[in-house]
Design a binder for these strands. Structure first.
Length: 266
DNA sequence: ATACGTTCCATTGTCATACT
DNA sequence: AGTATGACAATGGAACGTAT
């Protein structure tokens, strides 16, 4: 790429144009990471117990407050899994599917399987900032995988050598907070959507069964309220009918030369 | 020709193990 | 200890076979 104009107050680095007072650091320069393991599944005394053990499928939780599996102390000491602290960034290492490159944050101390790398928290970086940076770089992370084709994986060496823009800890925290605020707003919106969907479901139940009539259909011309009648589908308004879909389709059947037909429901 | 149930196969995630 | 890879299980969808 040819020389481009760099805005005042910015500088060119190997990872792109960033503010002058930011640095570029590799993950291995400010913290370390480790992978986990799986206690032998054929030894039942390794399973159960009190130690949370996370499989890579649970990375989609994004913020991991609990996991579904538990292992015993015996399982913990007889496998290569180990406790990683709360506030670690967890990254999927293996898998052809979407797990590889997916990141999450542990919100409890937990153990993981060998397909998860845990990047430890440190006093030099913001876990949330690192999480957002890596989450944003999902496609890039996937392209970094070793090996050819689907089976490739990330490994600890690749993670340690990942470079990222590195502002002061205070700025990292502030950036992460801003993003977290947006996440909060999105979560609120999602809650609202769920609520509206519940209202819609309830409304469908009322309107499609005739339990509640829209005002202009609820009364006879003389002002008396329309009654209900009993049918095989339950009580429905006295002026409604019960018909099979087949009956409706027969009536709607358009005549095409080739014999095909469609039903348009409005 | 259609409806339905079954089988097959690709994808993905996971575990075990050999290798460095 | 960390990584690569063979093996396998779970899943879902496509393809196929059969009865009507």
């Amino acid at each position: 790429m040819s020389k481009q104009t760099i805005p005042a107050g910015y500088k060119q680095t190997e990872i792109g144009v960033i503010p002058e007072d930011w640095n570029v650091k590799k993950i291995g320069e400010f913290t370390d990471c480790t992978a986990g393991g799986t206690p032998s599944t054929s030894i039942s005394s390794y399973w159960g117990g009190n130690n949370p053990w996370m499989s890579s499928g649970e990375l989609h939780l994004k913020r991991v407050f609990d996991v579904s599996e538990r292992i015993t102390n015996e399982g913990l000491s007889n496998s290569s899994t180990k406790y990683v602290p709360s506030e670690s960034v967890l990254m999927g290492l293996a898998g052809q599917g979407k797990t590889r490159g997916t990141v999450a944050i542990s919100k409890i101390d937990l153990c993981t399987n060998q397909s998860i790398a845990a990047i430890f928290p440190s006093s030099k970086h913001s876990t949330e900032y690192l999480f957002y940076n890596l989450d944003y770089r999902y496609e890039e992370l996937r392209s970094l995988s070793t090996g050819d084709g689907g089976r490739g994986g990330l490994n600890l060496k690749i993670i340690r050598s990942l470079s990222l823009p590195y502002p002061s800890l205070e700025e990292q925290t502030t950036i992460a907070n801003a993003l977290s605020d947006v996440d909060g707003l999105l979560a609120e919106l999602e809650k609202l959507i769920v609520k509206k969907q519940a209202i819609k479901t309830a409304t469908m139940q009322q309107l499609l069964t005739g339990k509640t009539r829209l005002p202009q259909f609820a009364h006879h011309p003389d002002g008396t309220k329309k009654a209900q009648k009993q049918t095989e589908l339950g009580p429905i308004p006295e002026d409604w009918k019960v018909k099979t879909v087949y009956e409706l389709a027969e009536n709607q059947k358009p005549q095409f030369d080739d014999g095909d037909w469609i039903v348009v429901v409005k």
